[in-house]
Design a protein around this nucleic acid. Structure first.
Length: 827
RNA sequence: GCGAAAGUGGUGGAACUGGUAGACGCGCUGGACUUAGAAUCCAGUGGGAGCAAUCCUGUAGGGGUUCAAAUCCCCUCUUUCGCACCA
């Protein structure tokens, strides 16, 4: 007989709902605990990744409630974005329709899983009540000089008249029409995240973040110290600034490398009318960024016909236009030192550009003709005028200071991090609250007119350009300053903007005067436990940190970091691969819940592996989880009366002697309490916690005749049963509540404190020692707990198998590891 | 190429600051119950030798430190993830 999971789960979901136990108060005597899972994109149905993510979050939520915290677990939807727009284009519908439908479905499925969500705080980023405040933040950023416009190159499809994301470029062609993708220079909005670069490198205010996420962000920001060097052009007063981390190699610079996008190159192109040169530049620029940055791409270049002057020795160096320099890193220009930089070396060999050794290898003298690769190690400076014979690493500061003094350059810091481009030429996103006026320029929409609502009557799919251009009523407005006809900005914001502050909105999600009240934010923030996929390690998590710091600088929050603890959970795989429609290995949670119930799915997910690791889906293992819950159910079903009668009295009250079997069970009870609590509280390792409960259940089942126990034993037996629903509650809440009620309680389990273990019951009279001889296991023995070292040694030597192995050998040393083993060294 | 993490039975995974490798689950084998199946229960289960006690071997591969290594160090291989012509 299977336990009636369907009835039980519905019953308790209703009860929780009715009693609003998951609706968190913004004021409380209790300490707060904010549990947040990354909100989902409403793709339609819940998938296994969601189930895994939210099962972890819910286990933490419920456990923290038991510990007496005022817990908030909110939920919402990251509901703007390309998929909905693409779907609408394809099916000639509207993104709002499908989005709302998907959200309704997902909300139902969240409830079916029994997650303890505070639905009163629900947000959806595509609702005007929410996106109004994204626009509000845009304005604040603009006012502080942190939102600005600049041109940048984008993937562009001439035929569709639209910008394409990298994922919409298929083999260099547009995903929709198949025409080749070009690079187009466009005006785009940016947020100046680089202003916060140094602070984003500082992780001292986060309590627990995985090291690797911090490393990834640190590398992404990529702070490097170096020198900016100013090269004059040979035939003009113009200056090219280069950035280098190796000023010690400056005397070895034999050419300069510029990207085709460099403003000087663009200028020369117009001036020279050199066909070869402009063809080369066109080719490089028009390669989409994927191809261009691929490792296999060959280094290519063309001589610009111009020379620059190396300021340190006034030597003429050729200026080359190349495909391997990036416009937006450093100063967008490179001083090439082929003898000491591998990329420059390859390039120089290919185009027969001279090289010069300026750093000698102290171990083995370098000879130009024999070099097969650049020498990038430290060494001794040569051919470097007054710096000859200096050690290269130590010479760096000296050379930089000398250049600074002689106005040839300066010491500087460069970041790999670029400003955050937030412009999207799409409909289904948050409109940028800007109006363009011929006379007044860029004008912000006044706060009282926010939000700039998305027009509903747009032609999706008919016109190929940004649909907002087709909404003429919306597009043409009067300038708020001069009242003359003007046009709205048609770019919408990157959806990462919406998800950069939602964690704060949850603290006051219905507020229509402000994004949120400070008192609420100060009470709840930072998020105590954030949970989500590792794929967001850099982008989302860094944008959110940036926003949080900005909100702090506006005085809206008083914390430095949004997320105190971070757990990056693994993905759900099947047959060793990520579940995806294209691979056809998707398992639908709905089907599994219908068949086995939500508790089973949750237990499986948490039991299959530690949270940060991938979970390999297995139909068989799910049955195992179901079997376990059935065994729990049956235990209480078959022994209900005896448990019910005895579980409410203190097991220590009577003092009949108890058998060694019951002592063992008592040990199991208290050992399990200790283990489960440690696994959850210290390690967040739910798989071993569940394993411990399973083991304990096996121990309880080893008492086959509970009716025949004496009164004291019965209470210990009942205690061993009673802890099961309590410990299981965070993982399988429905069945636990039902059992809790069955054995005669009228409270909810989240009101029950995690049980305490009694250290007295964990003490053992005898301890098993292992005996090793020369590192090999040779015997075991039971030793009284109070035996001293000498006695333990003596006992070990008496063990028969030990004696056998010691025959004919002399004992050199005996090591006793207390409560563990005896190790004998003998020859 | 750079950076990070990982590699343990047939399988998912355990193993505290080095101290009985394989907890718990799945699968498999044998048995009980059953007309039969499902469900359930009992026993066994890294490989090899042996009736057995026991012994040998074993945590990707190779070396090392140690009384003792899955764990620490060095080298190699593989996989996964992230980033990438970063000057």
């Amino acid at each position: 007989m299977e336990y009636p999971f369907e009835k039980i789960e519905k019953k308790w979901q209703k009860k929780w709902n009715k009693n609003k136990i998951f609706n968190a108060n913004n004021k409380s005597e209790k300490k707060k605990y904010y549990v947040l899972s990354m909100f989902p994109y409403p793709s339609g149905a819940l998938h296994m990744g969601h189930v895994s993510n939210y099962s972890i979050a819910d286990a933490i939520t419920r456990y923290k409630m038991m510990q007496g915290y005022n817990v908030m677990q909110p939920m919402g939807y990251d509901s703007f974005g390309m998929p909905a727009e693409n779907f609408a284009i394809k099916h000639n519908s509207h993104p709002r329709l499908t989005t709302d439908k998907n959200i309704d479905q997902m909300r139902k499925q969240f409830d079916m899983m029994g997650f303890g969500i505070d639905w009163e705080r629900e947000v959806s980023t595509c609702h005007p009540e929410y996106y109004k405040w994204g626009q509000w933040f845009f304005k604040r950023l603009y006012e502080k000089g942190l939102a600005y416009k600049k041109t940048s190159y984008q993937n562009w499809c001439e035929d569709c008249q639209t910008v394409l994301a990298n994922e919409q470029v298929e083999n260099g062609n547009c995903w929709r029409c198949g025409n080749p993708v070009k690079q187009k220079e466009l005006e785009q909005w940016f947020f100046k995240i680089t202003d916060y670069a140094d602070e984003l490198l500082d992780f001292s205010q986060v309590i627990e973040w995985p090291e690797r996420v911090k490393t990834m962000q640190t590398n992404w920001i990529g702070k490097s110290y170096g020198t900016e060097i100013w090269f004059k052009l040979e035939d003009s007063e113009e200056i090219i600034k280069v950035f280098t981390t190796r000023p010690d190699t400056i005397f070895g610079c034999t050419f300069m490398a510029l990207p085709p996008e460099h403003p000087l190159v663009q200028k020369w192109l117009k001036k020279d009318n050199n066909r070869e040169m402009s063809e080369f530049c066109d080719k490089v620029i028009n390669e989409d960024s994927i191809t261009r940055t691929a490792e296999e791409t060959k280094k290519e270049g063309i001589f610009s016909g111009r020379f620059a002057i190396n300021p340190v020795n006034n030597e003429k160096v050729q200026i080359w236009i190349t495909n391997y320099v990036l416009l937006d890193y450093g100063t967008g220009a490179v001083m090439a030192v082929p003898a000491h930089d591998q990329r420059d070396f390859e390039f120089a060999r290919k185009y027969d550009i001279p090289m010069k050794i300026v750093i000698q290898n102290p171990a083995k003298e370098l000879v130009l003709d024999q070099m097969k690769e650049a020498y990038i190690e430290p060494g001794i400076l040569v051919n470097s005028a007054q710096f000859d014979e200096l050690e290269s690493v130590r010479s760096q500061t000296e050379i930089s200071l000398w250049m600074e003094k002689n106005k040839m350059g300066k010491q500087t810091i460069t970041y790999r991090l670029r400003d955050w481009g937030i412009s999207r030429q799409r409909y289904w996103g948050n409109p940028i609250p800007v109006i363009h006026c011929k006379y007044c320029g860029t004008v912000l929409v006044p706060d009282e007119y926010l939000p700039v609502e998305l027009p509903e009557n747009v032609e999706l799919g008919k016109t190929r350009q940004n649909p907002l251009l087709s909404a003429e009523d919306w597009l043409n407005v009067k300038c708020p300053l001069c009242g003359k006809p003007a046009r709205r900005e048609t770019d919408t914001m990157d959806t990462f903007v919406d998800s950069s502050w939602y964690f704060a909105r949850y603290t006051d999600s219905k507020n229509d005067k402000l994004p949120f009240r400070k008192e609420n934010a100060d009470y709840w923030l930072p998020v105590d436990q954030y949970i989500g996929g590792i794929e967001h390690a850099v982008m989302h998590l860094m944008y959110a940190r940036f926003f949080h710091k900005f909100m702090r600088d506006l005085g809206m929050v008083n914390s430095d970091e949004p997320f105190a603890r971070l757990l990056t959970q693994g993905m759900v795989t099947k047959d060793g691969a990520k579940m995806s429609k294209s691979k056809g290995n998707v398992v639908d949670p709905q089907y599994i819940v219908d068949r086995y119930g939500a508790d089973t799915v949750r237990v499986f997910m948490l039991f299959a592996s530690p949270p940060e690791k991938d979970v390999e889906w297995s139909d068989e293992a799910v049955k195992g989880a179901f079997r376990f819950l059935n065994r729990v159910w049956r235990l209480f079903d078959e022994n209900l009366e005896i448990i019910q009668k005895n579980c409410h009295s203190d097991p220590n009250r009577n003092n009949y002697k108890i058998s060694s079997k019951l002592k063992k069970l008592r040990f199991s009870t208290h050992h399990t309490i200790k283990k489960v609590r440690e696994d959850i509280e210290e390690k967040m390792q739910f798989n071993t916690a569940i394993a411990a409960i399973m083991e304990h259940l096996n121990n309880v089942y080893s008492i086959v005749d509970p009716e025949n126990l004496n009164e004291t034993e019965k209470t210990f037996y009942a205690e061993s049963c009673k802890i099961i629903p309590i410990l299981l509650y965070p993982f399988a809440p429905h069945i636990s509540e039902e059992i809790w009620e069955k054995i005669g309680n009228d409270t909810f389990l989240h009101e029950e404190k995690p049980p305490e273990y009694n250290p007295e019951y964990l003490k053992k009279d005898e301890i098993t020692y292992v005996i090793q001889i020369m590192g090999k296991l040779r015997g075991k023995m039971e030793v009284p707990a109070d035996a001293d070292q000498e006695k333990i040694k003596k006992m070990a030597l008496e063990v028969e198998n030990v004696q056998k192995h010691l025959a004919g050998k002399t004992i050199k040393k005996i090591i006793v590891v207390p409560k563990k083993l005896v190790s004998i060294v003998a020859k």
